[in-house]
Design a protein around this nucleic acid. Structure first.
Lengths: 340, 340
DNA sequence: GTTGGCACTCGCGGTTGCGGAGTGCCAAGT
DNA sequence: ACTTGGCACTCCGCAACCGCGAGTGCCAAC
């Protein structure tokens, strides 16, 4: 079938270009892949593929390279994730095994992902939206200041120092502790914030203001880092391996990596899906990264996708391998979070 | 005085080279600075400076650039920190004002430092060694697991999940909580760990193992992140401004920035001193960074230097400005920590 | 629809040839 | 004892040039 061979040619071009990083010509193609046809035939196919906008030549009389559209086609139709080898699986679980902390899990995931894909890895902290309040602890610092500690089911801990208008006695502190915990523990942060918000009205008038400031701090701790989510980046050293134009790729990339808001936007699309999402070149929302791709997926405990992780690298990358690695890491991290 | 002029020439060379990033010749020098002598005279001085190893020429018949030794001389003898302008001071305190978290303080400091110096900024988390235990909280997760939360005077919070061999009752948990707090609160982590270590022997035999595992987790939380200190990096995008050779400077830098152990070593020398320390080029312990300099200083609450922060950049940098910025940020951060 | 042949294109690497900035040295001046 | 102008020399950087070779498109034959 002619159509079939054209696609085989596209696949071969993508694979060779990814491997060698050089435009690939018709002759080299038939040598490296068993297409069973002559270079001339391949040339005809290439002309057709170019017509369709799937490949392009950097200059007349050079080999072809895939266009963004070509990669898109390749990813969507010509590839299936290659499963991880047993050794790789062992490496992954081994790497994530020893984590005792939420911070630690995230940290290790980034490192792992960067190492596995040889790209720049990005991991978003588990979103708080779905997490519940595990415990609230209030510690007196002086007679007028206390430390409010908020412990969430994801293992995240937030803390705020609060100045209170009333002198802090043990009794008052105990009462605060009991009431805030009663109102919030076990609730999702949305409901917890609401329940806490009503507390000040339910207590003796002279303590209303005190309750109000403490509650305000807790609610702020919930919403603050809850919506303004954090990301961690790793494997920046892999930028050095890109060999791509510094100005075009590396510089904008470094700038983007500093802007966590941008990263969140890049990952954002993938958060909701447990599929691996691929954004190729200029498909994304952020122009400076027009010559890079993002491979990302949602992850999280079994009660629904909580957050996302992924990698960003040059459009010319090993999509099947990268996608498989991203998926594998996401799954393992999800399991770990489930256990905790 | 001839000696004086030679030093003026060295200073001029450093300043011009830092500004233009190009080898500076005798003619350009007399034009840009009022040296009051002819180019020929400057050439003689330059020859002398080269003799002493303070400057060098990249190739015959090019201008001169300072050597590491030249920079050293410049930093040690020819420069004094230029004080921050009022506007800069305001910017600094404004930037750090709104921080409510230890994480937040560190995060903001990195950003601030990176922005101020236009270099890559590194901030080490306040060391735990001198900090004291503020509170220990134990929360039951199930009948056999509890979450141990350790709150330190620096505002740092560590947490560990512990599997206990005994069924957890409220009584047991309360007892654990009271005893661990009694043993540890107010102590430096060294003493706290020691005091906690004796706890298991002082309780009813059937609870000894339970105490032991909880204490082990707490002690581990103290020592773990206490010795293996954490650092935060920011302003990587400034690498792009270096314009230096990618292979020589940027690549090893990216690699070093990933290796937090290396960064700690780089900052390490400065931790103990409240002076601003400058390490120029190959003076440092890490060969790949032979063409970069580190400007760092200790910072921390008034009870002694706790930690360190600084920047790393190309040897060709504005030392006076950078040193001033590093010192200013360190001071402000120290004040903030003192208040908390 | 496939294939071999052929003329053509064009980027890349190496070479060559200035121009200019900068130097070192020397002899003269203060 | 320094400083200075002059001068010959060096060598980098840049631009132009050239030839090679990979690769293409097209066509005529199968």
């Amino acid at each position: 079938m002619v159509e079939d061979r054209k696609l085989a040619v596209l696949r071969a071009i993508v694979e060779d270009y990814v491997a060698t990083q050089e435009p690939v010509g018709s002759k080299a193609l038939v040598e490296r892949h068993q297409l069973g046809v002559s270079p001339a035939t391949v040339r005809n196919d290439m002309a057709a593929l170019e017509e369709e906008g799937l490949i392009a030549q950097p200059h007349t009389s050079a080999g072809r390279i895939p266009t963004d559209k070509g990669y898109r086609f390749f990813v969507d139709r010509l590839t299936s994730l290659k499963p991880m080898s047993a050794a790789e699986k062992r490496a992954i679980s081994g790497f994530l095994e020893g984590a005792h902390d939420l911070d630690d899990v995230v940290q290790r995931s980034v490192r792992l992902l960067a190492q596995l894909t040889q790209q720049v890895a990005i991991v978003q902290y588990p979103t708080l939206a779905r997490s519940t309040v595990r415990h609230i602890e209030l510690v007196a610092l002086s007679t007028s200041r206390l430390l409010a500690v908020l412990i969430l089911s994801t293992g995240r801990v937030e803390q705020r120092v609060v100045e209170v208008p009333l002198e802090l006695t043990d009794d008052l502190l105990g009462e605060l502790r009991i009431r805030t915990n009663a109102a919030a523990v076990g609730e999702r942060i949305g409901e917890a914030a609401a329940a806490l918000g009503e507390l000040p009205d339910q207590v003796a008038p002279e303590t209303t203001r005190t309750y109000a400031v403490v509650v305000a701090a807790l609610v702020e701790a919930m919403s603050d880092h809850g919506s303004d989510e954090r990301v961690v980046v790793g494997g920046t050293a892999n930028l050095a391996r890109f060999g791509d134009s510094f100005e075009m790729t590396i510089k904008p990339m470094l700038e983007a990596l500093e802007e966590h808001v941008v990263l969140l936007k890049l990952l954002g699309e993938a958060t909701s899906s447990s599929q691996v999402t691929v954004r190729i070149g200029a498909e994304g929302p952020y122009e400076p990264l027009a010559s890079t791709s993002v491979v990302a997926t949602g992850y999280g405990a079994s009660d629904g996708a909580l957050s996302s992780l992924g990698i960003v690298g040059p459009t010319r990358m090993d999509y099947p391998g990268t996608m498989a690695a991203v998926r594998a890491v996401a799954r393992y991290v999800s399991t770990i979070l489930d256990e905790a």
